[in-house]
Amino acid sequence: MAKYIPETIQKGDLLPPDVQALVDEKAKKSSYTYNARSSPYSMLWTVVLSIISVIYVVPVLLVLVNSFKKKAYISRNPFNLPTSDTFVGLENYKNGIEKIGFFQAFGNSLLITIGSVIVIILCCSMAGWYITRVNSIFTKCFYYLCVFSMIVPFQMVMYTLSKTSDALHLGTPWGIIIVYLGFGAGLAVFMFCGFAKSIPLEIEEAAMIDGCNPIQTYFKVVMPILKPTAISVSILEAMWIWNDYLLPSLILDKTKYKTVPIAIQYLKGGYGSVDMGAMMAMLVLAIVPIIIFYAFSQKYIIDGVVAGAVKG
């Protein structure tokens, strides 16, 4: 008989011996690697991978270096380091921030991403649990529509979605959260349904016998169990929403609200020549917060990607 092992078991938790054995076995399997540290090729591979890593980092460093050069020198010689002639200090940054209103755009992006992710997690986990537990024609249709919506490319609904949201006046950072909830619901509901199915009914029945109503059961029992899935979903949705260009560019009132990708594209806009200096500086400002965030939450991000891929 397969025993249910909650994902939330921590190292050092006191467990019954048979469950502990299962957990140990699971840990042993997942930590397995082909042990080649002793092989003579090991050093060689480390060197090869180090070279590839450098190639991976160079593009970002190149943008950083160029952001300190005078704009006229950037496209001509992007691979030269700044000299005393070409160095301009932080002028490109000042210039770019003023031109596109970077901090406002950054604030909008932050508000839209965090707001949408919170709303998606809350609403879709509830909907996912409801769909799994209430088995009716309606919930089945809803579920299959969600799966279907994951396949449909954005261009299919691009024009009509922008008209619909115009009609409903959703062109503000708060309004766009509703659009993201609707368009992001497919993946989120699908993943939450997949996980909610594996929660044993007995746990919820026990909560009910102890006198919980469905709302209490959800918040006190179901939601904590759904936490690992919630983290995966929020990582995937946040990566998408933060970097999304097309949807906000069509839906937001661009004269008032910009997000970071829109602001950067705006720098390019029109047919005139691009201020490469400001462009480089803004690219750096767009990348740095992401790298800092990544450094702190790498483990969750990578686990989230794996979980999302396996279920999606």
Binding site: S50, I52, I264, I287, Q298
Partner: peptide, 26 residues
Amino acid sequence: LLTKGIRGTNVFRTVFFMPNLIGGIV
């Protein structure tokens, strides 16, 4: 290569994954 237990595996994994977080426009 990264499942062979080579030295520095975690660093390499971190570096190779990094570009995914940067948006398409950037």
